[in-house]
Nucleic acid binder design. Structure first.
Lengths: 222, 222
DNA sequence: ATTACTACGTTACGAGTAT
DNA sequence: TATACTCGTAACGTAGTAA
């Protein structure tokens, strides 16, 4: 049986710092195992000094020990480290295949960029290589601004998820309003993002292929 | 085998959002189990759709699924809820046995209160009943300012753990600098705290027994 | 090198039941 | 009521070894 899961169950019942009476039957129902299993497991956890137990007239009083609290805290911290949201994302400029111009010039897209993002896009997108893990952390919980697709006589054009951001050179000298654009049916992989802005980012930030830039949610956010 | 623990191990190896090659032998050594066990467990986790696997030329590429990430996140949040630190603590005034005057009047204590806490204590302490769990959350990670004990011809006087705080009535009108004092060999239980201040708190906050007050770390902290 | 099969020993589980 | 025995069965872990 899963030590952490059971320990957490007990902590939620008894409180992290408190002790409280419980019955093996009650816990067994919540856990979908037999009463005997809970009884055995409680004694196992006690032996491991993760909890303390003492019999009471109608059950057992149970609470976490410092070691038990420590184990839960350790897990929390390890998971936190994995999932923490980043406020910045570093990307390395590279030259794409030129489809960027496509998004920024097609009228139905362009007008939505203006209306929804407040950006009248300079033709073309800035392509950035990023760490996929960092990209996920950066975008975690962010709600995209959705630019809807359309079709003309020849083909259909997919929707685009967008995010208002700021982009800076690594020296933090120039701070420019921009937007992350993520075509929902992307031709790029997880290690790539595209950025649009009202101005020529390559020129304004003085970028050559391989130079790094930093994306931020705002100049001072959260 | 502990599902959460193994899943976390994999997440730390592969990254929360990434996939990465691993060998069952490598993980078995880290985990102190046999290679076969890891092999079986990986297949179990795959069956439960917590991870995905695909064979590679020198091992297996493994990553978490959305469900796997969700399970870890769920645990993190449940533990967070249990352990989150409180910035405020509500207490209910009650009349103690008068030993408070003892701490605030004994010269060796008094002089340390002035020097270490910046408080020339008004005689007596304000006794507050608090939720033991909330008390723990409030004091969690706080570093006490230690007022050392002493002895005279008759007896020894124990050390006191102190914390600089602010105390307010619940209407948040009056905000007063104060200190929590926790005798290290306390005669009070976990559901009690004592507060000292330069002024008469009962008078300044207009307190009668049973009235509630709020303790805070500072007027605007953390 | 790997992963994963079989075989076997050990541990964990649950029903019945003693306390 | 409760916890915790016994004991039959199921699941798990490991060594050897195949693929």
């Amino acid at each position: 049986m899963d030590t952490i899961k059971l320990l957490l169950e007990i902590a939620e019942h008894s409180g992290f710092y408190k002790k409280k009476e419980l019955t093996t039957i009650h816990l067994s129902k919540k856990y979908q195992v037999s009463q005997q299993t809970i009884s055995n497991q409680l004694r196992r956890l006690e032996k491991q000094e993760l909890i303390f137990r003492s019999p009471s007239y109608s059950g057992t009083v149970v609470g976490l020990t410092a070691a038990g609290r420590g184990l839960l805290s350790e897990f929390k911290e390890r998971i936190e480290k994995l999932t923490e949201r980043s406020d910045t994302l570093v990307g390395k400029a590279f030259t794409g295949l030129g489809e960027g111009r496509f998004y920024t010039e097609k009228m139905p897209y362009k007008s939505q960029f203006v209306k929804k993002l407040g950006i009248k896009p300079y033709p073309g997108t800035l392509n950035l290589k990023v760490d996929p893990d960092e990209k996920m952390k950066f975008l975690q919980d962010a709600t995209p601004i959705r630019v809807v697709g359309f079709k003309n006589e020849n083909r259909t054009y997919g929707a685009i998820s967008c995010h208002n951001i700021y982009i800076t050179d690594m020296k933090d000298i120039t701070d420019m309003k921009a937007a992350l654009i993520i075509p929902e049916r992307s031709h790029y992989s997880d290690d790539t993002v595209e950025v649009i802005s009202a101005e020529n980012l390559r020129y304004k930030l003085n970028l050559k292929d391989g130079n790094e830039v930093e994306l931020k949610w705002s100049i001072k956010q959260n």
